[in-house]
Design a protein around this nucleic acid. Structure first.
Length: 223
DNA sequence: TGCCAGGCCCTCTTTAGGGCCTT
């Protein structure tokens, strides 16, 4: 698929790229590589562009990953190499801020692959999983698929494929923003505040958000 | 041959251990 069109959307406070990697394993430090990347560009809570590509990791995919993702060695054999795909992906994400579910995982792989092609990430990462743990403490668990069901979010029923997971994470991100803004009566919560929320100790996240709400009363009232 | 990550978060904690989450 790649980008539906060349992404020239200007970076703004209202744009964020939600991304997901499928990989050969858990850690690039152990030589694992991506086999697929999927991402969507959100603008003011709406998906306005998509990116998806398989890539050839230059190593065999083990049977667990083949079963887990449905991505086979035969599928990636004819795919472009990681370096080519990641160079295109860098054009897609530009300097937009980034979101992923368990972002530390995707950040590791993105930075490792960008390092291989001498490319530098400009946007900051926020983690929908860490924020979900703070905003949805009563969810059965905080796996992406569970949260999609818990919040009755849109899903095409495909899991563990990069674009499908990125789209679900995007819907979750929009739900988080809406629920925080409604619960704490904040008109628009900035991306840096979401990043700070993810790093706020879980037990103090609720009072911290109320404090933030009170200190930003000038933007509290919704039209 | 067998094993391999790492940050977060809770608790039977803090001089630690184990589950969660990502593939």
């Amino acid at each position: 698929m790649k980008g539906e069109k060349k992404n020239t959307r200007p970076v703004s406070a209202d744009t964020v790229v939600v991304l997901d990697f499928e990989t050969t394993g858990l850690s690039p430090d152990l030589g694992e590589r991506p086999i697929e990347v999927g991402a969507v560009l959100l603008e003011a809570g709406r998906i306005i562009d998509r990116f998806q590509s398989l890539m050839n990791p230059g190593k065999r995919i083990n049977s667990f990953i083949e079963g887990y993702t449905g991505i086979s060695n035969a599928m990636v054999r004819k795919a472009p190499p990681c370096a080519e795909v990641m160079a295109e992906f860098a054009q897609f994400i530009q300097a937009h801020n980034l979101v992923a579910h368990n972002a530390s995982f995707d950040q590791k792989f993105l930075d490792a692959e960008f390092g291989r092609i001498n490319c530098q990430r400009q946007g900051d990462f926020a983690c929908s999983m860490l924020i979900s743990r703070r905003i949805y403490p009563d969810a059965p668990n905080h796996q992406l698929g569970t949260l999609v069901g818990y919040k009755r979010l849109k899903s095409d029923g495909i899991f563990h494929r990069a674009l499908a997971d990125a789209e679900m994470a995007a819907h979750l991100w929009v739900a988080l923003l809406g629920d925080i803004e409604n619960r704490y009566r904040i008109s628009r919560i900035p991306f840096p505040v979401m990043r700070k929320l993810a790093r706020t100790p879980k037990a103090s996240a609720d009072p911290w958000l109320w404090q933030y709400s009170r200190s930003h009363a000038d933007v509290k009232a919704k039209p």
